[in-house]
């Protein structure tokens, strides 16, 4: 009696383990396949400008400073073009170099800084302007132009200033 009860409880537990195991395996497989299909490599403008042909066609993500003079929008074709200038990829490096707004300002005004041409199918977002930080996802074509699929913008400007500029007049 005791033996059958024991083996029944054992086979019961086995069912849970097999069922749960199969489920977890399915989830893991989905994670692997989704990662292969959609994960993006974060690169800097300088790394992308190095001309590495292996990068062509990969899902990429790049961050840089928007060069205001370069923004053009063709509303007939609904196509946006602009350039971004290299900024460091690491938050700490940016902080050490004097904070985001200073780094963005420097990046745009330094002629020797590598730049990257961006083409984006769509309208210019509200915050696209000179010295904004753009975070783009997309792919690189063989001419070294970045075809952006997604466009995120960040303006550090006013919100980070601790002290007011204008004083009681």
């Amino acid at each position: 009696m005791a033996h059958t009860a024991f083996s029944r409880s054992k086979s019961n537990r086995l069912k849970f383990i097999i069922g749960g195991g199969l489920f977890v395996m399915a989830v893991v497989l989905m994670v692997i396949s989704a990662t292969k299909a959609t994960a993006e490599f974060f690169m800097t403008v300088r790394e992308l400008g190095a001309g590495d042909q292996d990068l062509v066609g990969q899902n990429l993500r790049v961050s840089g400073a928007v060069v205001g003079d370069s923004i053009t929008y063709d509303s007939e074709a609904d196509q946006l073009q602009f350039m971004i200038a290299h900024i460091p990829g690491d938050e700490r490096e940016i902080k050490a170099a004097g904070g985001l707004s200073w780094v963005l300002h420097q990046a745009v005004n330094n002629i020797n800084n590598p730049r990257l041409n961006i083409v984006y199918q769509g309208a210019p977002p509200d915050m696209l302007r000179d010295e904004a930080q753009a975070i783009l996802t997309g792919t690189l074509n063989t001419d070294g132009v970045f075809l952006a699929e997604e466009l995120l913008l960040k303006c550090p400007t006013k919100y980070e200033e601790a002290l007011p500029d204008q004083v009681e007049k």
Binding site: A34, A37, F41
Partner: peptide, 8 residues
């Protein structure tokens, strides 16, 4: 750095 987005 590899990031994942909405599609993932």
């Amino acid at each position: 750095q590899v990031t994942v987005g909405p599609a993932w």
